[in-house]
Amino acid sequence: MQWYLKVLKNYVGFHGRASRTEFWMFFLINAIITFLLSLLDNFANTDNMISGIYGLLTLLPLIAVGVRRLHDIGKSGWWYLISLIPFIGTIILLILACFKSEDHENRFGPVPR
């Protein structure tokens, strides 16, 4: 849960680097919360209003941690725009998020610990 809160606190931080653990733990917890809120929406018959609001609230932190993750592997944050290509772009972005971090300080900052 600490990784999730760390990303939320740094929701507009597009500078620096994010480790694989930070990115994937946020992604996992976010997916679980979205799933649970979708279930709540179905039981409350609210037409995905609750999960939609949550999705909008976490959109900026998700983009920010994705950009920082790209920085960690030495790519520019502009690579995040590849996700605009339907289906294939998202797959490419998820594959890039799986790459190992650069072991040394790069132009985006020191190695995250």
Rank of each mutant, 00 (worst) to 15 (best):
M1W: 05
Q2P: 12
Q2S: 14
W3N: 12
W3F: 12
W3C: 09
Y4P: 15
L5A: 11
K6W: 09
K6Q: 13
K6T: 14
L8Y: 07
L8S: 09
Y11Q: 03
V12Y: 01
G13P: 00
H15Y: 03
G16K: 00
G16Y: 01
R17G: 09
R17D: 08
A18T: 02
A18V: 01
S19M: 08
S19L: 07
R20Q: 10
R20F: 07
E22C: 08
E22M: 06
F23D: 05
F23Y: 15
W24Y: 06
W24E: 07
W24Q: 07
M25R: 03
F27P: 09
F27C: 09
L28Q: 04
I29A: 10
I29G: 08
N30Q: 12
N30K: 04
N30Y: 09
A31H: 01
I33W: 03
T34G: 13
F35Y: 13
L36A: 13
L36Y: 01
L37P: 10
S38C: 07
S38Q: 08
S38H: 04
S38P: 06
D41I: 07
D41S: 10
D41H: 08
N42I: 07
N42P: 04
F43I: 13
A44G: 06
N45M: 06
N45W: 00
T46D: 08
T46F: 06
D47G: 14
D47E: 11
N48G: 09
M49I: 11
I50L: 13
S51V: 13
S51Q: 03
G52W: 00
G52Q: 00
I53M: 04
Y54D: 06
G55C: 03
T58W: 05
T58I: 15
L59F: 14
L59Q: 00
P61A: 04
L62A: 14
L62F: 14
L62C: 11
I63K: 04
A64H: 06
A64R: 02
A64K: 05
V65N: 03
G66T: 12
G66I: 04
G66K: 04
G66C: 11
V67G: 12
R69S: 09
L70P: 05
L70E: 03
L70G: 02
L70Q: 08
H71W: 10
D72K: 06
D72I: 02
K75E: 11
K75A: 14
K75D: 11
S76F: 08
S76Y: 06
G77Q: 07
W78H: 08
W79L: 12
Y80L: 12
L81Y: 07
L81D: 08
I82Q: 05
I82V: 15
S83G: 15
P86V: 05
F87R: 00
F87N: 00
I88K: 01
I88Y: 08
G89H: 02
G89K: 02
G89M: 08
T90G: 15
I91S: 06
I91F: 11
L93R: 01
L93H: 09
L93G: 09
L94T: 09
L96F: 15
A97P: 13
A97F: 15
C98Q: 02
C98M: 14
C98W: 02
F99W: 07
F99Y: 11
K100N: 14
K100R: 11
S101A: 14
S101E: 12
E102I: 15
E102T: 14
E102S: 13
D103E: 15
H104S: 15
F108I: 04
F108G: 03
G109F: 05
G109K: 02
P110R: 01
V111I: 12
P112A: 05
